[in-house]
Simulated assay, not measured.
Amino acid sequence: MNYTAHADGPVDHMDATKYPPVACSLCFSDQGLRLDAEQFQLDYESVMPCPNCGLTGGKRLPKEALETLAHRYFVWGSLWRGDYGGAPRVQFNRKQTTTINVSPWLKPDLALFERLLGIGFFHYGPRLWMLGHVTPLEHLRNSGTRAPVIQRIINEYPSVSYGEDNTFYRLRSSPSAPADPIQYDSPPDEYLGSGRIDSPSLPVLYASPDLDTCLHECRVTAEDETYVATMRPTRPLRLLNLAALLREATQVTEFESLDIAVHMLFLAGKHAYEIIREIALAARHANFDGVIYPSYFSLIRLGIMPFQTIYGISHRIVPQLQDHEESKAVPNLALFGRPIKSGDVCVHSIDRIVLAHVRYGYHFGPSAF
């Protein structure tokens, strides 16, 4: 079995002869850590006493799962997000001793990780690119230096043809005429300029080929009357794919990367809208019919830690990881103008959505360090 420490999700079906358990979920004092440990889908027998605490009935953990748990709780759980980018405030390795000061109830668990894994926890001082100090991003944030970087984005990001065989969805909450296709077109003029990409001079139809993402972004509740229109283009649409991962020259560092700059831009909040709207206007002027862009909810949709690094190097510039990184971007569509009214997009069907079940995925992190 191939096992990746610091995996994004649970590790399951581990061979007990190859990965012998060293602890169990009952070893932990902190309730958050205990609940996190119970999330691992491991098929060890739990009737034998735990080799660490001697109790039965807990979820057995080998060293590899224990290391994943430490990363998920202390590293991901201490993530700090700035206006752009972000970085964990705690890290661990086998070379340093523990220097963080945790809450009293967490100290026995910290000692357990130290003893069984031979690691130490310390405050992490990130490289500044992780906090948004990326030259193209800094130029985008300055209105006086923005235009050349936007032109680079138009020139360097790939163009995609979205044809009649592509299906995508648009949600509306409480439309006045739910069965009327025109209700699912871009909003009227008086509502323009409030979204991520639309502006007073550029109506945008927001949609996604991923229906779950639509539900996330529309913040649908069980009380809403929600409807979904299934749409297809009537002609090939020329779209600028901003969800793509740029394969930049190997000599480009994280501080110079246009790819990382755009990635951070779409993970930012409303303060980034002004820049994104200017990119959209430039794409319109370059005769694109719209843009594909990564959903703000991509990472929470997939349950993935943002701004992952290996020894300070972004995963996005490691060739062996680029395909995997690109797959993390859940694509959204922003189609310019009013494509339903113009006939460039047809509404195939309209259905009411009934929320039957909602489940939150979560894990924990330290409250003090």
Score class of each variant (00 low, 15 high):
residue 257 S to R: 05
residue 235 R to D: 03
residue 312 G to M: 02
residue 288 F to Q: 07
residue 277 R to W: 02
residue 301 R to I: 00
residue 262 V to C: 07
residue 253 T to W: 00
residue 287 N to R: 12
residue 302 L to T: 02
residue 244 A to G: 05
residue 265 L to P: 09
residue 245 L to D: 01
residue 236 P to Q: 14
residue 273 Y to S: 05
residue 273 Y to N: 13
residue 240 L to V: 11
residue 293 Y to V: 08
residue 253 T to M: 02
residue 311 Y to N: 13
residue 271 H to M: 01
residue 275 I to Y: 05
residue 264 M to I: 02
residue 244 A to L: 06
residue 282 A to M: 07
residue 300 I to S: 13
residue 276 I to D: 00
residue 280 A to M: 06
residue 323 D to N: 12
residue 251 Q to S: 05
residue 260 I to Q: 02
residue 249 A to S: 09
residue 306 P to T: 03
residue 254 E to H: 02
residue 259 D to R: 01
residue 244 A to S: 15
residue 308 Q to I: 02
residue 316 R to W: 00
residue 269 G to F: 01
residue 237 L to W: 10
residue 236 P to I: 04
residue 284 R to W: 08
residue 248 E to S: 05
residue 330 V to Q: 08
residue 265 L to Q: 07
residue 260 I to A: 01
residue 317 I to Y: 06
residue 247 R to N: 09
residue 256 E to L: 08
residue 261 A to C: 03
residue 307 F to G: 01
residue 323 D to A: 14
residue 314 S to R: 03
residue 272 A to V: 04
residue 238 R to K: 15
residue 237 L to M: 15
residue 301 R to E: 11
residue 318 V to Q: 14
residue 295 S to P: 07
residue 319 P to Y: 11
residue 302 L to D: 10
residue 286 A to E: 10
residue 305 M to Y: 00
residue 244 A to W: 10
residue 328 K to Y: 13
residue 248 E to N: 03
residue 317 I to G: 00
residue 266 F to L: 10
residue 305 M to L: 01
residue 250 T to M: 04
residue 301 R to W: 03
residue 270 K to C: 00
residue 298 S to W: 05
residue 301 R to M: 03
residue 306 P to H: 08
residue 304 I to F: 06
residue 314 S to W: 01
residue 275 I to M: 10
residue 289 D to G: 12
residue 284 R to L: 09
residue 316 R to L: 03
residue 288 F to D: 04
residue 252 V to C: 05
residue 269 G to N: 10
residue 311 Y to D: 13
residue 260 I to W: 00
residue 296 Y to C: 01
residue 250 T to S: 14
residue 237 L to Q: 12
